[in-house]
Design a protein around this nucleic acid. Sequence first.
DNA 1: TTGTAAGCGTTATCAG
DNA 2: CTGATAACGCTTACAA
Lengths: 339, 339
Amino acid sequence: MMPTIKDVAKLANVSIGTVSRYLNGYNVKEENKKKIELAIKELDFKFNPMAKGLRTNKTFSVGVLIPSITDIFCTQVIEGMQETFDKYNYSIIICDTRNKLENEIEKVKFLMAKRVDGIIIMPVSNNGEHIKLIQNSGMPVVLIDRLIENLSCDTIVCDNVNGAYEAVENIIRRGHRKIGIIAGPQNIYTAKERLEGYRRALNDYNIEINESFIVYSEYKKGAGYEAYERLLNLKDRPSAIFATNYETTLTGIIFFKNMGISIGEDISFFGYDQTELFQMLTPPLSVVVQPMNEIGKDAAELLVKRMNGDMSFFPLIKRLKTSIVVTDSIKNLIDTKIE
Amino acid sequence: MMPTIKDVAKLANVSIGTVSRYLNGYNVKEENKKKIELAIKELDFKFNPMAKGLRTNKTFSVGVLIPSITDIFCTQVIEGMQETFDKYNYSIIICDTRNKLENEIEKVKFLMAKRVDGIIIMPVSNNGEHIKLIQNSGMPVVLIDRLIENLSCDTIVCDNVNGAYEAVENIIRRGHRKIGIIAGPQNIYTAKERLEGYRRALNDYNIEINESFIVYSEYKKGAGYEAYERLLNLKDRPSAIFATNYETTLTGIIFFKNMGISIGEDISFFGYDQTELFQMLTPPLSVVVQPMNEIGKDAAELLVKRMNGDMSFFPLIKRLKTSIVVTDSIKNLIDTKIE
DNA sequence: TTGTAAGCGTTATCAG
DNA sequence: CTGATAACGCTTACAA
């Protein structure tokens, strides 16, 4: 069968302890080092992570919980994590919660049972009871994209208030006053913040908020169709609409296409999250761009720190800046050029 | 610390062997069963997979090697695998090879060192030396999307010859005779097959093959720009172009947009792989659709079988059928309506 | 620096 | 059906 350090020790004529020490980077006499290295090559020895893990109580694997593996936001975030976890030799165990809290809870149990060394979660809701359980067991957790209220937890998020604010501000400066918003579920922190950004921008520009311009939708694939319908069926309908996440942005594009409403002409439209194809539309789409790779990288790096016992600044809440892409999907309603 | 079966045994007043048997579904006296269940609840016992793995030599984890986690094809395939692996309690360890053979080789080593129970690979090339190593170690491997020649390995692929054939046939039946193709690297089996489908279709319709209409490109993000340039710079340029994978399709869309060439009007364009946004373009894009979820599901199911020691029909090569979406991105050059 | 040996939490064998 | 006990492959005191 597979050779063990015992075999290596025998062949190298040293004790198994010495081999173990060599493998773990402790000092070993140069001569023995050579012999061990030779024996390892000879036998093609690979050490058994389970045996090691059993002793050290580390699996060198981390769990990553995301709402959907086909979601572009999630995959970009994962991409950002990879380099860091690679560097430290962690395996990434991906779990897809399909946007359901019950799955999230189940997967958390699964990962804890698997004894991963740490977990990164992009939570589907504002519910954090199961996350408390993880923390109580001593396992580090980092939340991404969505903050959970009433929970002390490391979190990497984007500055959603400002992201939305800038988008709405841009719409306003192009002359729009009637601006609809596809807001997300208000039990999702991110959604709440984006709506807050919308409100602030209107306030700062002294535009009265028309509550019927605020419609709510799930943040799921295909969600939001009725929300757009509702907005367009208003007697006094908005001239511009701001969608606050990727899925609802996509739905908007589909909706307008189906309705024969041309973006930038019949309706002005601002979306959230960037994908190459959004810029291939006619006209290209104005969007809020989030630094998705960076979120992943920061989360991974923080988790590694925590797994190494460094709890400085806990709970750390890091907010990353977003930017906006401005295109003709927002019609310019005023004569003066805008910079 | 964490309770072990020893603690459970003590509390339940039975031997540790009995607890282990209970946990593994062997017969245990009803009375003891009750006591054990109670003790487990009481202590909140979770068994240690590393200890189990050390004995049984199983990690209950599988490795999945893909060229890129942000590739829509890959994520859809992974989505298809999840249900199956969930059912059998396997964790999925995702590794991104970034389309480089050297990374693929390294990741294979990583996964073998981690002692996963099986590996699914979407190979980046036709090189299978490292895959032979896996097989020699007794670890089951299933290849997806791309077959590797001169390697006996379970493989789930799409019928690429027919997929391409149908696309080209459709283009021909709409009156085109000058059809360009963005072919992939010919050391990728999938790319070879798709080119083969193109050739066959032209042959079957008695259209002479113009070798300058065949241009090659990498199958990577952003690749293929020069390939399109080359085709359009021909004195006698094609009236239709067929891109043979997702990335080059995307590049095509970008290229035409940049050049101000309108698809379906100035040039006819047929792509590969489906994504919602392709249907939101003006006009929507004609594409070959692959059953990505099904590939994942089939691969997962086959791997589970192999991991359970069932080697029937090895090496199994399964080919899944593709379909095509036909839109106005192909201009109809003949009067008679086509069905 | 090294060898020895006890343990990590299970499973599996064997005798009862 | 159960209990006792020897592995599984490694790390880590401890003593030398």
